[in-house]
């Protein structure tokens, strides 16, 4: 194989793995929007929270895997009350929830800045093997990330489509009032969904921490990308979000070989504008009733 083909192949692979991480974040975003109409601007900061917590837990626990279990639990404890006591009154008004979550986003970022500091830091790869494909050595941790992300996505799918609680969540997405009338405890469904969405973002943060740098503003870039993904895939559509995340991120990965990172992002943005011009509700978004 010629040199450039190998380069493109590896960029594609990096893009796909990054796409899986973005997919985790964007799935949480779209799930939260679908069930309670919250546009969560703080979602990128939950990702940052996951990475920062992992940074603190690693020296204490000594194992990356303990951090991977503990961080979601901590995030759940934080996210539950936020939904119940802060965001509940605004649900169903996307613009208002967006402003409220901007407030939460500022709070999270400043707390991280005050405690963690403003300097980017790195976490060492938790697994130390790499293998050689086509004459290029590839870090094994990235494949592990991909495997974990795929496992989680499959798990979410099974949870939503094969369990009783998943049926409750999907019923609340379709028609919240009717679900409530049928005796579903919608309040608990809402809290649970918000926690699931937030935990997904935090897990993505833990997984991404060794690959990218841990920084208190790291959520901004990722938040932007996952919002583009959600818009292209269609707000509230889980399948569309997954497809859009993988496509856009591998596209960005390949484009990064010829363009600067910002230009690659601008190219993704142009794709989004085109999609919006043709389909104002995204590729797989549902029509307004």
């Amino acid at each position: 194989m010629p040199e450039w083909a190998i380069t493109v192949l590896f960029l594609l692979m990096n893009g796909l793995i990054w796409g899986l991480i973005i997919a985790l974040i964007a799935l949480g975003l779209t799930l939260i929007f679908g069930v309670m109409g919250i546009v969560n601007m703080a979602h990128g900061d939950l990702y940052m929270l996951g990475a920062v917590l992992a940074f603190y837990l690693l020296p204490v626990s000594g194992s990356f895997w303990i951090a991977l279990i503990a961080v979601p639990l901590i995030t759940a404890v934080i996210a539950g009350p936020v939904e119940r006591f802060i965001l509940r009154p605004y649900e169903g008004h996307p613009a208002v929830t967006m402003i409220a979550t901007v407030g939460i986003s500022f709070i999270l970022q400043q707390i991280a800045l005050a405690t963690y500091g403003g300097i980017p830091k790195k976490i060492a790869d938790p697994v130390d093997f790499s293998f050689t494909v086509l004459g290029v050595s590839y870090p094994g941790y990235r494949l592990l990330v991909a495997a974990i992300a795929i496992l989680i996505i499959v798990g979410i799918y099974l949870f939503l489509y094969r369990t009783n609680y998943g049926i409750l969540i999907r019923a609340s997405i379709q028609d919240r009032q009717m679900a409530s009338a049928m005796g579903i405890n919608v309040s608990s469904v809402l809290v649970t969904t918000f926690i699931i969405g937030s935990v997904l973002a935090a897990i993505a943060g833990v997984l991404a921490a060794p690959i990218s740098q841990v920084f208190y503003l790291m959520g901004n870039d990722v938040g932007l990308l996952s919002f583009i993904v959600v818009i292209v895939g269609g707000l509230g559509s889980l399948g569309g979000t997954l497809i859009a995340a993988l496509t856009l991120c591998s596209l960005e990965g390949v484009l990064a070989s010829v363009l600067s990172p910002t230009q690659a992002k601008a190219a993704i943005f142009v794709v989004m504008i085109f999609v919006l011009m043709v389909r104002p509700r995204g590729l797989f978004g549902e029509r307004e009733g």
Partner: peptide, 23 residues
């Protein structure tokens, strides 16, 4: 666009232009 799309898309547009201006 509908309300939710409008807020998100305007935010994305500004963010992308901000990135370009930085670049």
């Amino acid at each position: 666009l509908s309300e939710a799309y409008f807020v998100i898309v305007t935010a994305i547009i500004a963010a992308v232009f901000h990135l370009l201006a930085m670049d």
